[in-house]
Write a protein that binds this DNA or RNA. Structure first.
Lengths: 308, 308
DNA sequence: CTGAAAGCGCTAACAG
DNA sequence: CTGTTAGCGCTTTCAG
């Protein structure tokens, strides 16, 4: 033992993994780390996983098809004991790959059929954001989100929430006001530009992410319009920099989502065989943060005296 | 072979690693993924590493002491073939751990003695940013950076560049204008608050990161001052959201830094034994992006007619 | 309760 | 060039 100490001996992990049949590492399947939400979740998950003595293997899979390719390859199965999934994915043909003898998986911030998940109530949160705009008197409320054909379930949930709130207020969702921002700042800016050049302007915009919202904000200002004077804007995430910009938004605990997901997975790994193996899911709270980018609709602000 | 295909056979990586003596994976030592620059570098590095067929093992080490602890533990040695390091670190006592039989390492965006690195010329870039302010007539130019005692070499380089530009303009760096923002938005906001409450206001601020700059921007606006009317502000990074905010800043190719670093490492790993094993370093270009947060100093803008 | 031995599933080096 | 065999360095089981 003393000799080992002096010779800086360290056990060969691979030998130990081979003999023990456990890798003592968990995979982190992430869409793209350059997106704020993903990075937050990964950061939180990594901290928990590392604290539990596991290695973190990072898999970045951009594009919609790749996660499935990744899972189909099933090479990951022998290199990790479990998976934290932060990739939105269409709910199809995945169960096959995940369910037969694959390592346990927990999704973080996303929703996959049959898997335990840690996330927020996207639909309710989006409805809250939209209702905020409705309550301010807005009637032409645009949505900056994704391309529905990509089948991103989170985006789908948020779109439904948006429609819920409109419908509840007696407003009819206008397909022309539902544009694709690709969940990037640039995409948000371009989406807003399309809204601006497409006839009747919306008086308010709900963006499915703060990054897209800030892109939209830039476009609005460059067009000579004022926020919230001409257009109100609500985001989703509560990105640290959104606060600096006084963006009204929905706060979601991104980092905590990663932490909780990792904890759930670790629990499942360490409790292996000890019975309760059910796939628990957790829903964390969101909160509307009203800052300086939302204001009463002008058409409403001055109704007394106006003809109609 | 056909049977293997049908049975969904996948080779056991750990057995292969044990037998071959190579792990076919590289470690990514990162400070904190919730910082934009780190996430960008990791994202770029991961893409290259994965494309080369290696696994990525992620190690997140917050705090100044941890990287050293990590390296001292040397547990990582047997689990990765090489290391991409994105952790700023004081240039001390590290060489010992890295040089004796440790796997090859490349630093990305940071500078460690004795290691190949991929980065920008922080000193020159900081000087460029500061000179931009000097050229606008500013004389009281504050610096939002880190605590110099932390010994972050990048921050040190940027501080020197800042001082270079001041000195070259015949200005004397004022220690009272050099504040610690901890490289976070919140820290930048607090640092700016300290500057505001500390007597004579600076007319311009150079922040060592965009995140700190946006925090400072918020503080300035909340204080009722205008940008760039009362205070000019330059950042460092060219964060995607900085563009949305019209922040003048120094552009650095964060993602590319990660990609190139990973490529260098992979080359070194695959060329093992084939001779040229020298530790090449790469310096990538930066660029000043003048946007809307910098303007001529008021004291200078109206000199004709003023007494002095 | 301590100590020896038999694999874990591959790779690489050997003989045929 | 193909087929066989001896380890890689642990863990775990079994005998002492």
């Amino acid at each position: 033992m003393e000799a080992a100490e002096e010779l800086h001996y360290v056990a060969d992990l691979n030998a130990s993994r081979l003999a023990a049949g456990r890798t003592l590492s968990v995979g982190l399947l992430v869409n793209n780390l350059s997106k704020w939400f993903m990075a937050q979740v990964v950061s939180g998950a990594e901290a928990v996983v590392a604290a539990a003595g596991y290695d973190v293997v990072l898999y970045q899979t951009e594009g919609a098809a790749e996660p499935r390719t990744f899972l189909a390859a099933s090479a990951y199965r022998k290199r990790v004991d479990g998976l934290v999934i932060v990739v939105p994915s269409p709910p199809s043909e995945l169960a096959d790959h995940l369910l037969d003898g694959a390592p346990p998986a927990v999704t973080a911030g996303v929703r996959w059929p049959g898997l335990a998940s840690v996330r927020v109530d996207d639909r309710a949160a989006a409805a809250t954001a939209t209702r905020h705009l409705v309550n301010l008197g807005h009637e032409r409320i645009a949505l900056i989100g994704d391309d529905p054909r990509e089948g991103n379930p989170q985006a789908g949930d948020r779109r439904e929430g948006y429609r819920d709130a409109l419908t509840a207020a007696g407003l009819r969702p206008d397909p022309g006001l539902d544009v694709d921002g690709g969940f990037t700042a640039r995409g948000g800016a371009e989406a807003m530009a399309r809204l601006l050049s497409a006839g009747t302007l919306p008086t308010a915009v709900f963006s499915m992410s703060d990054e897209m919202a800030l892109g939209a904000l830039r476009t609005i200002r460059l067009a000579g319009l004022s926020i919230p004077g001409d257009v109100s804007l609500v985001g989703f995430d509560d990105h640290e920099l959104a606060g600096c910009t006084e963006l009204s938004t929905i706060h979601q605990p991104a980092r905590q989502i990663g932490e909780v997901a990792a904890r759930l997975l670790i629990e499942r790994l360490t409790a292996a065989g000890s019975g309760h193996d059910e796939a628990r899911s957790v829903v964390l709270d969101t909160r509307l943060r009203v800052r300086a980018t939302t204001a009463p609709c002008r058409a409403v602000r001055q109704p007394a005296g106006a003809p109609a």
